[in-house]
Simulated scan of single mutants.
Amino acid sequence: MDRRGFILAALALGGCATVGQPPGGAPPAPLAELEPLYGMQAGREGLTIRVRSGGCTAKQDFAFYVDRRGGAASIAFGRKHVETCKPVAAGQAELTFGWAELGLAPGTPVFVLNPVAAAGV
C-alpha cells in the first residue's frame, strides 16, 4: 500500500473511532474529570486545596498535572481513588502540595483549572 492509500484508510477508519453524543444531546463537559474545589490558597510553603471528604481523604488520593508556559503554570487536580469510607457527615479536607513537589518555584504565577464548588450545595 502506498502512502496515499494508507492516509485514506486511516481517515476512513478514524470515523469509526469517534464517540457520539450522550443521550440528551449534551456534549461531555471539558475538564469533567477534575475534582471540584471548595477553595484554594497559595502560600509560602505551597498550594493548599480544599476538597469534599467523608473523613478519609488523603493527599495520596490525588494526582496533579502541571503545564508550564510563558513563566506561569496551569495546574489540574484529579482524584485517583474514590473515597470508600462511610462518611459520618459531609465534610472537607485541606491538602497542601509543596512548591517543590509541584515542580514550581515559589512566586510562580499559578492558574488552577479545577471547577470551584460552593460548600454545602
Rank of each mutant, 00 (worst) to 15 (best):
G98H: 02
F77K: 01
A73Y: 02
A73K: 03
I49A: 03
G70M: 13
A9N: 06
E94K: 09
G15C: 09
T57M: 03
A119T: 09
R4D: 15
A9S: 12
G54A: 09
V116L: 11
C85N: 14
A17T: 08
L31R: 14
P23D: 14
E35G: 01
G24T: 03
T96V: 02
A10R: 12
D2G: 15
G103H: 13
A26C: 06
A118E: 10
R50Y: 00
L11V: 11
A105K: 15
P109V: 06
L104V: 12
R79S: 13
S74W: 05
A72L: 08
L47E: 02
G25H: 05
L13M: 09
P22V: 05
A63Y: 04
F62A: 09
F64C: 00
R52F: 12
P27M: 08
A119P: 05
H81N: 12
W99S: 03
T108K: 07
P28C: 03
P36F: 10
Y65V: 02
G14V: 10
V51E: 01
M40E: 09
R50S: 15
A119D: 04
Y38I: 01
L113D: 05
G78R: 13
L95Q: 02
E94I: 00
P28F: 05
G5P: 00
K80I: 04
T57A: 04
V121H: 06
R69G: 05
G14P: 12
V88L: 07
L95A: 02
G5K: 07
P27S: 14
G46C: 12
A29I: 13
I49K: 01
T18Q: 09
F77T: 00
Q41S: 13
L11H: 04
P30H: 07
R79K: 15
V66P: 00
A117Y: 06
A105L: 15
G14I: 06
L47G: 00
L104R: 07
L37P: 02
S53Y: 10
G98L: 11
P109F: 10
I75Q: 00
V19K: 01
A119W: 07
P109T: 13
S53R: 08
G25I: 10
C56H: 04
D61Y: 11
P36T: 07
I75G: 00
P23I: 12
W99V: 10
A58P: 00
L8D: 11
R50F: 00
F97H: 01
T57L: 07
R69W: 03
R52E: 14
F6H: 03
E33F: 03
K86L: 12
E83M: 08
T108I: 07
W99A: 06
D67K: 08
K86W: 10
L102P: 06
Q21S: 05
T57P: 01
P109W: 09
V88E: 09
Y65F: 05
T84Q: 10
T96F: 01
K59W: 04
T108S: 11
T18Y: 01
A118D: 04
L113W: 11
L8C: 05
T48L: 10
P27W: 06
P109S: 14
G39P: 05
I7Q: 03
A58Q: 14
G55R: 11
L11N: 04
P28M: 09
R4E: 13
W99R: 02
G70D: 15
G54P: 00
K86C: 08
G54K: 02
D61S: 12
V88S: 15
I49W: 01
P106V: 14
P36A: 09
A17R: 05
A58D: 05
A76K: 01
C85M: 05
